[in-house]
Amino acid sequence: MNINHKLLLLLVVLCQSCTQSIVINTTVPEPLVEKIENFNLAVIYEDNIQNYQYENINSKSSACCEIDFSDSQLNLFRKILQSFFPGLIELPNNNSEMLSNVDLYMEPQLDAFEFLSPEESRNDKYAVWLKYKIDIYDNKKTLLSNWYITGYGEQNTGSFGVSESLTKAIDLALRDTGVNLAIKIEDDFDKLVKLISTDL
């Protein structure tokens, strides 16, 4: 191996060690909500809820590049929806069959994920935004409504490391999504039930 090859190998190794990779393992606590009994909800999670991986090679951020959400989003939606609907049914996302015992179908998908690093926002915080679109269908698979649920989290860099601050900001944004989803279900679920009733 000549000197050029050695230098090239060293450059590749150095560049790889620069790539930041963050794995999100958010777990939300058991929500303190009233259960909605005698209602059968089926949920179909889009791929970007089940295992979303963010990659940004152009960002100025020192904590950018690769963020693996693993099953954090899936666990969040499961935890919130199961706490409201004890008989929640999960269906695979290629499901086309209509089940007789289901009253409503929900199809959540990640619509947008954005973050600002301290370098970009010129302060000492990471700020994270999440936006989800939830399509809601009746038991004949007619679209009833679209819900847009957002989540926001921010974390000072302070005594935390760069990737730890970003991880905490994402953790807060996911928890905030859970808050907004819970509020939306409490506020708007009755309207959906009325829509089904008028449909009949």
Partner: peptide, 12 residues
């Protein structure tokens, strides 16, 4: 905060 989730989060 965890015991009261989601009613003691920054938003609520």
């Amino acid at each position: 905060i965890n015991q009261l989730y989601p009613w003691f989060e920054p938003r609520t």
